[in-house]
């Protein structure tokens, strides 16, 4: 093993630990998926409440996908990736939020 590059400890965990991460990710994302489908399927949430609940569950699940499947965490060596993802999230929020704002505003004026 050559070690001329600095490999952060968080990445040098070995196969068994890494497999556990994937299994943890699978359990977490499956639970969040079933929670979302269960809440809507049982008719427990609807309308504005449903949107808020679904939005929260989706954000948590997307974070879990990045954390467990794509290995993006807060480790120093991932900060470039994390900054890129957060910047994209900002652009996405601006585009979606701005479009929805303008189109709904225009609709009320028509």
């Amino acid at each position: 093993m050559s070690d001329d590059h600095d490999l952060p400890r968080s990445e040098d965990v070995g196969e068994a630990a890494e497999r556990r991460q994937y299994i943890r990710g699978a359990v977490a994302t499956l639970a969040l998926t079933l929670a979302a489908f269960g809440l809507v399927g049982s008719g427990y949430v609807s309308g504005g409440t449903a949107l808020v609940v679904l939005c929260t569950l989706a954000i948590v699940q997307i974070a879990a996908h990045f954390r467990f499947f794509l290995h993006i965490d807060l480790a120093r060596s991932h900060r470039d990736d994390l900054q890129l993802i957060l910047f994209t999230a900002l652009i996405v929020a601006l585009m979606v939020g701005g479009t929805v704002w303008i189109l709904f505003d225009q609709h009320t004026r028509m």
């Binding site: 093993m1 050559s2 070690d3 001329d4 590059h5 600095d6 490999l7 952060p8 990445e11 040098d12 990045f66 794509l70 290995h71 993006i72 965490d73 480790a75 120093r76 060596s77 991932h78 900060r79 470039d80 990736d81 900054q83 890129l84 993802i85």
Partner: peptide
């Protein structure tokens, strides 16, 4: 910004030369 970029998915110490090459190509793909 750190000088060394480690893409989230990585080869770690199991294949160091390719791991180093991955820093740039995988970040670009991101």
């Amino acid at each position: 910004m750190s000088d060394v970029r480690h893409p989230g998915l990585n080869l770690g110490t199991t294949d160091s030369p390719v791991h180093d090459a991955a820093e740039e190509t995988v970040f670009g793909f991101w």
